[in-house]
């Protein structure tokens, strides 16, 4: 059973549709959208608002040679190029899986780091409890495989979790399969226990 129950907020989808989310968060939202027809419909509705605004805006005159330049550019295209379906992460390089914690591995994703936001995949074995932690910025997560659970419920494939610096949590990986997530993390993770603090430096990418 893989029904999606946790979605991005409407504000987040609207920001996504208007192109104002940073790249790191857009990647995680796009991943959720690739699972979720409900959010796709909402985003399309927001894009329709953009279209309506575009139609009604006062035009800014193009330079006199602009049309000529564009016609030259497309002049060599006889046929629209065949569309190759592309994976969401095709533009990025994926790092090697690295050990970060017993039963937990992480691989980096080469989304350019802007404003101290990193994107990575996390893979944790069933039954693992991640140490109690909070964040210095936001942490957005989309589950790819398996599931985890914390005080706000169970998160399975496609589910989206928006956590910010006000939240402390202690996710547990559900039994069954390993859980793989795509994560955009701003700032750092702060562990609440002495043991966690010891390994904190290891978690920095």
């Amino acid at each position: 059973m893989t029904s999606i129950t946790h979605h991005p907020t409407d504000e987040t989808l609207a920001a996504f549709a208007s192109g104002t989310l940073d790249e790191a968060r857009s990647v995680v939202v796009s991943m959720h959208m690739s699972f979720c027809p409900v959010c796709n419909n909402k985003a399309r509705r927001y894009e329709a608002i953009g279209g309506a605004l575009l139609d009604r805006t006062s035009p800014a005159a193009m330079k006199p040679d602009a049309l000529q330049k564009v016609l030259q550019l497309i002049g060599t295209d006889l046929q629209a190029p065949a569309v190759k379906p592309e994976g969401l992460l095709d533009h990025y390089q994926l790092g090697k899986w690295r050990w970060v914690w017993p039963g937990v591995r992480q691989r980096s994703i080469s989304v350019p780091v802007v404003s101290n936001i990193k994107v990575f995949m996390l893979r944790a074995e069933p039954g693992i409890q991640l140490p109690h932690h909070k964040h210095t910025g936001y942490e957005w997560t989309c589950v790819l495989e398996g599931a985890f659970e914390h005080q706000f419920g169970r998160y399975g494939p496609g589910d989206f979790d928006e956590a910010d610096e006000t939240l402390e949590h202690k996710p547990t990986i559900c039994e069954g399969a390993a859980c793989v997530c795509l994560v955009a993390l701003q700032g750092n993770i702060e562990f609440q226990s002495g043991w966690g603090r010891l390994i904190q430096p290891l978690l920095r990418l």
């Binding site: 549709a17 208007s18 399309r44 894009e47 329709a48 953009g50 279209g51 309506a52 605004l53 575009l54």
Partner: peptide
Amino acid sequence: ASASAWVYTIAR
């Protein structure tokens, strides 16, 4: 999508 919504997404 309407034509303008589609063009908007390309421009975005």
